[in-house]
Amino acid sequence: MTKVFFDQVPVLKLAPSPPPPWVAEPVHDAAGITWPTRARLIEIFGSDELVSRILVSLMNEAREDNALLDQARASADVPLVVERLHRLVGSLAFVGGVDLERGGEQLIARVQALGVVETAPQLQAFQRNLRVYIDYLSRL
């Protein structure tokens, strides 16, 4: 007799929290919601080794997408800016960057409605915040 087991793949989706101040350490709000910890990620994904692989892959892809976002922003290429933002937002959602994810989704809509030049300050702020979050993840 053969038994088939179906493992559910967890999807990390944290409860929305107010935007954290952008610092290099986990941020705690009054409700106790924080950026993900390594222990929390291990709990969700099942092993330390898997978390390490996920984080390395995510950080490499996010850095690459961020560099390409710089180029797209410099050329005011709306479709490419939106594409890179979509990729970054998806990565952030995967590892609990809820506040950046939400901000990125709003930024996508703004870029589509107003263009790259008009949203340049918001794009720059998003990228600064993204770098802080990547730096935080790299130390987990």
Rank of each mutant, 00 (worst) to 15 (best):
D65V: 14
L68I: 15
S47H: 13
V111H: 01
W22C: 06
S75G: 13
R139E: 10
L130N: 02
R139P: 05
R110A: 13
E105S: 01
V82N: 07
R110K: 15
A39I: 03
G103N: 09
R63D: 14
L12N: 11
Q124W: 12
L58I: 11
A74P: 05
G32Q: 11
A39C: 08
I108F: 13
K3P: 02
S91Q: 03
E64C: 13
S47A: 08
P121R: 06
I54F: 02
S47F: 11
L100I: 08
V11M: 13
Y133K: 00
K3S: 14
M59L: 10
G97M: 04
R84V: 08
A120H: 11
A30H: 08
T34M: 13
F94L: 09
V116H: 07
F45T: 07
D77Y: 05
F5V: 15
L69D: 00
A39L: 14
F94G: 04
V78F: 08
L85M: 14
R73H: 07
L50R: 07
Q122E: 10
L14D: 04
H86A: 04
Y133E: 01
V56D: 04
A39E: 15
Q112C: 12
A31S: 15
P19R: 00
E105K: 06
L123T: 02
S75P: 09
L88P: 00
Q71M: 09
V111D: 05
R131Q: 05
Q127P: 06
V11K: 14
A109I: 11
P26A: 10
M1G: 10
A125W: 00
W22T: 05
V95I: 13
F5E: 14
Q127A: 07
G96H: 02
R128Y: 02
R53Y: 06
L14I: 08
G46D: 09
G115Y: 13
I44H: 09
N60W: 02
I54S: 03
R53T: 07
R84D: 08
L140T: 03
A15M: 06
W35R: 01
L137N: 00
V89K: 01
I134G: 00
D48P: 07
E101G: 01
E61G: 13
F5T: 15
H28R: 14
Q106S: 06
R102I: 05
G32N: 12
R73V: 12
V23M: 03
A67Y: 03
D65K: 11
V98C: 00
V27G: 00
L85Q: 03
S52W: 04
D99S: 05
D70Y: 10
A24R: 03
A109E: 15
A30G: 09
S91P: 04
L88K: 02
R102Y: 04
V132D: 04
W35E: 00
S91F: 01
E43Q: 15
Q112E: 15
Q122T: 11
A120Q: 12
S17Q: 10
I42E: 12
T37P: 12
S138N: 14
I134R: 01
Y136G: 04
D70Q: 14
R131W: 01
A30N: 11
